[in-house]
Each structure stands twice: as C-alpha cells, then as structure tokens.
Design a protein around this nucleic acid. Sequence first.
DNA 1: TTGAAAGCGCTAACAA
DNA 2: TTGTTAGCGCTTTCAA
Lengths: 355, 355
Amino acid sequence: METAPGNGAATRSRATMLDVAEKAGVSLKTVSRVANNEPGVSSDTITRVEAAMDELGFTRNLSAGSLRRGDGRSDSIGLILASVDNPFDGAMHRAAEAAAEARKFAVIAASTDESPDREKRLVTALISRRVDGLIITPSGGDQKYLLPEMELGTPVVMIDRPPVGIEADCVLGDHLEAARLGTEHLISFGHRRIAFLGDLAHIASVIARLEGFNAAMKAAGLAVDPDLVSVDNHSENTAFGSALRMISSANPPTAIFAAQNMVTYGVVRALYERNLHKRIALVSFDDFHLADLLDPKITVIAQDPYAIGRAACERVLERLDNPGQPPKTTIIPARLIRRGSGELPPDSELGGSRN
Amino acid sequence: METAPGNGAATRSRATMLDVAEKAGVSLKTVSRVANNEPGVSSDTITRVEAAMDELGFTRNLSAGSLRRGDGRSDSIGLILASVDNPFDGAMHRAAEAAAEARKFAVIAASTDESPDREKRLVTALISRRVDGLIITPSGGDQKYLLPEMELGTPVVMIDRPPVGIEADCVLGDHLEAARLGTEHLISFGHRRIAFLGDLAHIASVIARLEGFNAAMKAAGLAVDPDLVSVDNHSENTAFGSALRMISSANPPTAIFAAQNMVTYGVVRALYERNLHKRIALVSFDDFHLADLLDPKITVIAQDPYAIGRAACERVLERLDNPGQPPKTTIIPARLIRRGSGELPPDSELGGSRN
DNA sequence: TTGAAAGCGCTAACAA
DNA sequence: TTGTTAGCGCTTTCAA
C-alpha cells in the first residue's frame, strides 16, 4: 500500500507541453501535434514524445486549448434536469451520457428542483464554463433569457417539456395525448368520478397532462369535480396527503390518474393505507420499478426516458456539426401498459352509499 | 414568440471583458475587478461597468481565469459513479451537488458501469478538464493510477468502497458489518439454508458483503452451500435468473440475502414468479421505493446515500481549503429496518420434503 | 517534418 | 481608485 506523500498538498507541479518538449528534445508545437494526432510527425518523434509524456505523467489541459482555438469548444454538454435523484431524470442522464461519450463529450448535469430561478442560474454557471451545448428541462417561467446565448450559436435542446416564449429544438413525450389516453382508458371501464393528481402547476408538462385529462373527460360528457383535481404535489408525501384526503372524503373518486412518478408513489401509499388499492382504479404516468409486483399490478402510461435523453444529446451534436438548422421537435411516443390497476371497475360501495 | 435568428449558427460573437471595458470607458482590469467583486472600485464605476455587461450580454469565461490564476481552479468536482441511473447513485449525486452548490462548484458526474477501464478513462477525462477534486466509486482493480494526481494536490475521496493499493479519504457504509447484521437477523429466525446473491465479484463492497455473510454463517456454525452463493449478478435480469434457479432447485434456501438494490429487484421478481414470496424470507441490502408496499413488506439494511454523498463532497472542499491532511475514513452507518420479509420463519415444506 | 511567434480571455503583479 | 504589462497552457499561423 503506497501513500501519496502529503495527500492533498502539492508536492510536484503539473507537467505542461513545454516540459514534455524539453524532455523529448523537441519543440512545444511538436508535442501539441502528437497530443492531437496531427499528421506530419515522424514515428520516431512520436515515440520519443509519448515516452516523455508517460514519464512526466502529462495530462493536457483541455481548457487551455479550448481558449486558444477559435471555436472555444470545451467538449462538454450541460444537462439541466429537475433532479438527478429522480429515476426518470437519471435514465435521461444515462442515455445522454452514453450518446455524448461516443464523441468524447462530458456531461455536466444539474438539478433545478423545478425552480425557474435556479434554472437561470444553472444556465449561467454552465455558460461560464463554456459548455458546447445545453439540454434543458424547462421548469416554468419562460426561456427568453436563452436567446442571447442561442444567437451566439450554442445549441439548445429542450427535453420533456417545450420552452415558453422562444422556439428551440425539443424532444418530448406527448403529454397531452398520453394523459388523454390514460383517462380514456379509465372512462372505458365505466368510471365517471376520476381524480387527477399532478406535480407543480407551473410545469408545462403538468399543464399539458391536465389538459389531456380534461379533454378526455369533456369528450365523454363527464364533469370534472374540482375537489378531485390536485396539483402542486411535488413530493411523495404531498401526493400522499392529497390522495388520502380525496379517498377519505364523503364522495371519493372511483379512479385516479396519477400524473407523475413521485405522485404515483404517494397515491399508491394512500390507497394501501386505506385498503382501497383493490377498489379504486389507478393509472400512473411514467413506469417505475416493481410496478408489476404490487397488488394489483399498476397500469401505466410508459414514456421512454432513455430514448428522450439519447435523442436530445444527438440533436445537440448534430447542431454542432451542422449549425443553422431550423428548430425541430421530436416526439417520443408513450404507450399504455395494462397491468390490472387501471382495469378495475367502478366500486359502487365507495364513500358509503353513493356511486 | 421570438426566434433566435439562425438558431445554432452564430450571428454575433461573445463579448469579452475588453468589449465591456471599451463600452464602459474603463480598462480591462477594472472590468475584471467588478466581475470578481474586488474592493477598491468606485460605486459609480461599478454601475457603469455592470450596465455595459448587461447591454453586451457578457458572461465571463471561467476557464480563461482559471488558466491565468496560479491555482488553476476550475470550480468543478468530478463524481465517478457506477451509474447515474442507479437510484442509490442518484441520491449520492444529488447530495454532492447540494453540498457543492453552496460553494459555487459544478459537479461533473460520469458512469463506470463497474468497469475499471472506464474508471481510468473517466478520471483522465476529468483531469483534462482540471476538476478541483474527485469523488470516485472504485469499481475494481486498483487505484494506484491516481497517485500522480494526488501528489499534484488534487483531493480524491472514495465513496461506497475503499480504494485498493493506495490510501485516500473514504466515505463508506460498513458493508461487512451490515451484511453480518442482515444475515444474523435471518439466522435468528431459525434459518439454516440461507442464499447470498450479489453484484459483480470484483467490486470491493460486494466482497465485503459476502465476507459479512460468511462470517455470520460461520459464527452460527452453519455451512455455506456453494450452490446458494451467486455473484456477478449485474442486472435485475441476471439476478432474477440466479434466484429462480436456486428457489426451483431440489434443495432451495429458506431465506435469501440480496446484497444490492438491483439484485433485490430480480430476487423479488423470482419469488413472486414461483409464488414463494411469502414462504422464503428475504433481507435486502439498500432500501428502495415501495419496499413497504410489497407483500410481505421487504426488510432491508438501509444505507444513507445522501449522507455519503454529502460527506464526500464536504471532504473534498475541506481538503481544498486545508491541504495536506492525512487520509480520513468516514463510516456512515446502515440500519436494519424490519418490515416482514426478513422475519418469515423457515418453511419446512420447501423443495418437496426436506428442510 | 519541424519550429518560432503571436494570442485566446483572463488575472497577478506592479505602477500611477 | 485605476491602469499597464506580462503570461497561464495551449493552438494557430506562418516560416524553415
């Protein structure tokens, strides 16, 4: 077992290309040529330079090169998510990372917690680090603040939600249609009192999902009971409380549409708490681990976060290679997976007597 | 709705401090002073400079400053995880991000997928970007390759697993003790045929957990059946297959210790598949969403990934402020949460006749 | 095939 | 309180 002498305190200084050049007996520029695999260096020189690099433990400073180069490329992409801790976001992140890796790009991910303010600050922080492109989950407000950066030529791709106030590339699920699909599914099983529980109301995708829900209800000639619409449930606990209140009321829903993964966790918990999980139907937006091992198995509208993350990153790289294209929106379809919870019939005994 | 003219194609160029200086009628250095909140600038000048910055949409280039400054600080920390897509890793990431944010550090996270080779390549990539510190989940092999970088003064903190071949700061769960605890728990309910299912055998924490399992078995005078020890289950599906084979055999275990979250998912699925989830006891390493809504509820050894992520990031910052400290290991305790699955008694009917 | 000189955007060191 | 000059580590440009 070796110890790094004075771990944390520098005992040597970092080798530069100049150090390598001296050691190898060549000029600085030749070292640069070798580091960049530029043609026109004799194989003998390459060998000598590489040996010197190894001996000195040389690691080039990418930022220095980026500074000098006209384009100023940093070979990194900023990824702004709601939270790196959310499974859906984690999946998008992983896919983006994989797509970026092929081109040696690093991904710098950051969490907004759905705060428009944090979103702006994170964008500034990433731009200060001169990321070559941005993938953003817009968290509300508008995205006009991005215009100057976009005019500078930085590719910006929105994921999961469209931007507000500007045009930009988007990679999205079709929240409205998917929510309509899920709601229609419940209606087709005879439900008339259907509840909607969603995340923060300022999030575009939440609004779209609520619209899809309302559209399906309206098309079926069903009234939406305001008591059965709950938004701003930004944690499992909040959703748990809201769901508990609804299902414990005198006039509970016979079915619930849970419009986000964390919301679903809270709703499921509430249904179990009141032992209503086999009596109240449930459709969840977003699939999740073990959904098919609960009783009943949970019917979901499954988006494909990997496909979204990959497509977004590829779009950034595409724009980097080929600037000036008009904005493009890519829709990644969601699909309904029937598992049981969404196919429960209305329970006429709920809430005492009434239907 | 405004459009960024030629979105993706630069229509202007980025303003530098020199541009701001000209516009504000001051020198470059004065702009730098304002950007850095340095004292000794008249409030009148500050106002003029800030107005010029706003007008030009100036965003400073952090890398350029970092290059010039002696320390070369980039205000960023590299975080190497097994996978940003794993819930445990996502939680560590979130906590590290929060701790870094207070000091305006960015976190660059990357996934090794448990490949020692990728680990090395990622470290090189991060060092090329001159991160100020590294938080690493060692994925196997040894970490001697880090010594040159540590001698250069870069703080390196290992999380979740100790490094091999070098000394460094660590923030760890006590895998061995925690696994012993979980195994003893099963033994205390009368189990004698206990299975162990783990992730890749080259991962230090997997080895430690297996040691803890073996130690508990030995201390209780119980033989470990090699057929009931399965490692290298690196996906839910692999774990599912291994568990299915064990529980379908002529001589199945009466209890299972699932040593990682993904492994647990596979094991649970196999138990449900064979309808043995209420007959074979289960303890899971790592807590997970909805563990308490399965039937039976899953008993877990819960680590605290947030505490681990936070402590690791704080350690990096500490070392940055105060270099040269000796390596320190921080142990974040795990706790047993009894929920039901770990308290099932041995089922003597399993496997036909035998116990 | 190789090298010399200039300069990317910024901050350190010093001067006024 | 403000400015001037040099130079971080690298790549560009041009010359040999």
